[in-house]
């Protein structure tokens, strides 16, 4: 029983429940205008009333986020690797990457719609635009920070560059690459939500816009919670993968 209590105190579940209780209590005691702070129960009711649309939007945005993330992660890993092994590419192309990130994604929105139309691809591209950079930077950093003494050891065994890459450089860089992934997954969600603002009919971003235009404050909260749940879900999934894949992180 004692152990169970301790676990409960340490887990974030208690904090969530506590916050929810305080929230409900505040709403009942102070009774603020729902415009400022609606009751959690009201939000839940509203969510229930639109659940088919909410579920559809959730699925759509999730799909965009995951696709954008995967594309960005792949491209980022490839570019990070390229920049690590080609000094020339790093000198000439990498600054372009940096410049590209100084342009806010919102400024690109209209252009993306012109290029890719009102399609799934357009949203995936906005997500991709935000994702590839952190992955590139972290891959580059991870691969470059490979221990030179370990490289010397592998060379003394007669390892060629390919063997060195797969047996040493990639595993050494993995923890850093995972850091990049974790930053990227959050950005990918932002990218797909913002992407939907430029024209779409399904998605959490669309629901957010509609709620804003119709001044439905409770609906805004519903969508915000949905976004939070999705973000936490994706982040959790990634953390799970990371623990499995680079469990040695803390030791090295």
């Amino acid at each position: 029983m004692n152990v169970f209590m301790q676990r409960l105190l340490c887990s974030p579940a208690l904090a969530f429940v506590g916050l929810a209780l305080v929230w409900e209590l505040c709403v009942h005691v102070y009774a603020p205008s729902p415009r400022y702070l609606p009751a959690l129960s009201t939000i839940a009711q509203d969510a229930w009333s639109v659940w088919p649309q909410l579920l559809g939007g959730f699925g759509r945005t999730l799909l965009e986020t995951v696709l954008g993330f995967m594309l960005g992660a792949l491209f980022g890993c490839a570019c990070g690797t390229l920049f690590t092994y080609s000094r020339w590419m790093e000198r000439s192309v990498f600054p372009l990457f940096v410049v590209s990130q100084t342009v806010p994604v919102v400024a690109f929105g209209a252009l993306i719609v012109i290029w890719f139309g009102n399609s799934l691809l357009a949203k995936v591209m906005t997500a991709f635009f935000l994702t590839f950079f952190p992955v590139t930077v972290n891959t580059l950093r991870g691969l470059k920070s490979c221990d030179p003494q370990r490289i010397a050891l592998m060379r003394s065994f007669g390892a060629n560059r390919l063997v060195m890459f797969f047996k040493l450089a990639v595993p050494s860089a993995l923890p850093q690459i995972m850091v990049g992934f974790r930053v990227a997954i959050g950005l990918s969600l932002i990218g797909s939500v913002v992407g939907e603002w430029f024209g779409e009919t399904v998605g959490l971003g669309v629901m957010l816009m509609e709620a804003m235009n119709a001044d439905q404050v409770v609906r805004l909260w519903v969508v915000m919670f949905a976004c939070g749940v999705m973000g936490a879900l994706l982040y959790g999934l990634l953390t799970f993968v990371e623990r499995r894949l680079v469990w040695w992180r803390s030791e090295s």
């Binding site: 221990d147 003494q149 370990r150 060379r155 003394s156 007669g158 595993p171």
Partner: peptide, 15 residues
């Protein structure tokens, strides 16, 4: 390279 078995000061084990 590849002809001498070499052991550096640090164990350099792969974690």
């Amino acid at each position: 390279l590849g002809k001498v078995s070499f052991m550096p000061q640090r164990d350099l084990l792969f974690p």
